[in-house]
Nucleic acid binder design. Structure first.
Lengths: 224, 224
DNA sequence: TCGGTAAGTTATCAATGTTAAGTTAGTGGC
DNA sequence: GCCACTAACTTAACATTGATAACTTACCGA
């Protein structure tokens, strides 16, 4: 438990206008600690210690501890979006792209389980859920905490492409995208949250879930 | 936020041998508070106050705060098991029973979203996940925290019945059960955790997910 | 060079989970 | 009847936590 994490820049004070680099340092340290010890177990003081700065200094850059987590979630979502951009660049049929997208999503989650956990499963207490029951009427994709919706809308775009390329869906695009994402999330959430449970082989589960969702959502083409 | 929760039994001290009733009172109060305010937001002192007892008294009955949550999770799982018992008593074909079981699961989750959240999504920090990577070699279904596995094995039984009643599955029973449960969990987890997200209609999503999983897991019978 | 302010510090707060140590009161044995 | 035993508590305190208030430092532009 005592693996040491060297301080990033002990004693150096940032030049004027260079505060954002300190902000980045905080994010790097916080991410490392959140992933290693968990969100709750990571204290503001510990983050500050790793950065090489006093604890209250963090409040110059983040409203509170949650804001640090939200910023990190946005980073993760941006990573997912980039991952989809890459798939767009490859010459794939929309169907191929959908499956690749699903496979990439699962791979990302299982290769970075703690990051996935942090992003998709660490927030959201029931109390919070009850509180913020309202949405802002104007959607700003750059405001903290809204990169997730951007990523999801990209998935919907893939379904639109599938439909306009001649395939028939069993559901409207929104519903199809939601069902597929929910299924994949259910898979990785279970695997990540209960790694000790005696699941059947991962490869079987992954391929099984991809088959299940693809077949379930897009109509089998008529044999001609 | 100030809804008052009357104390259960202020000032009365339990007779000798009646400690377990105090334990039950603690569970009732803790459940109410956990559901209302969330796990983190609920303090040991507040639970004690509602029960009408001093804070350290809780440690006579529970090792720590987590132990209270685990006991409540077991209660929830027992409820799910009972729900399945009820379906067993109805005269249904195995296929009907599977779908009813899935529908009942979803209904339970959406009717008691906070209880579901508490049971399936509130624990499991990444740190914990890394720590308890070992399982006890002897499985005791009555030891705290293991009612979940019992409930899941019941679902597998349903798949065994389907198979032995002549249907063919696309996967081994374990895999089939896991895929179905994961999908349904993904659905309700998303709906519960992000109720403000503009999902398509719930009924469509629920029926869609049930269709998707059933069709995906059991082979369509040959038309004769 | 010097005032404004970005970038920090120290001191302190109230709240939290948990433990130590002492107290009360019911009960079985004589 | 009473007395030792112990189940069922209490009060006091601890170390840690997230967060704030108030003060300081040092860089940069005019």
């Amino acid at each position: 438990m005592e693996r040491n994490l060297s301080t990033i820049a002990a004693g150096t004070r940032k030049r004027r206008g260079e505060g954002h680099t300190r902000r980045d340092e905080i994010l790097i340290a916080a991410k490392e600690l959140f992933l290693r010890e968990g969100y709750q177990a990571t204290t503001i003081r510990r983050i500050a210690e790793v950065v090489g700065v006093s604890a209250p200094a963090l409040y110059l850059y983040f409203k509170d501890k949650d804001a640090i987590l939200i910023a990190l979630c946005d980073q993760t979502f941006s990573g997912l979006i980039e991952l989809m951009d890459e798939l767009d660049r490859q010459a794939l049929t929309p169907m191929e792209r959908l499956r690749s997208c699903g496979a990439a999503y699962i791979r990302f989650a299982l290769e970075h389980p703690r990051e996935y956990w942090l992003t998709f499963m660490s927030g959201n207490t029931p109390a919070e859920v009850q509180k913020r029951g309202h949405k802002p009427e104007t959607f700003d994709p750059d405001e903290p905490g809204s990169k997730g919706a951007v990523a999801f809308s990209r998935l919907m775009g893939t379904f639109r492409d599938i439909e306009s390329s001649g395939f028939q869906l069993n559901y409207p695009v929104e519903t199809a995208a939601e069902l597929v994402w929910m299924s994949l999330h259910g898979l990785v959430a279970a695997l990540i949250n209960n790694p000790e449970f005696p699941w059947t082989k991962r490869d079987v589960l992954i391929d099984g879930m991809l088959d299940l969702t693809m077949r379930g959502v897009v109509k089998a083409p008529e044999k001609s």
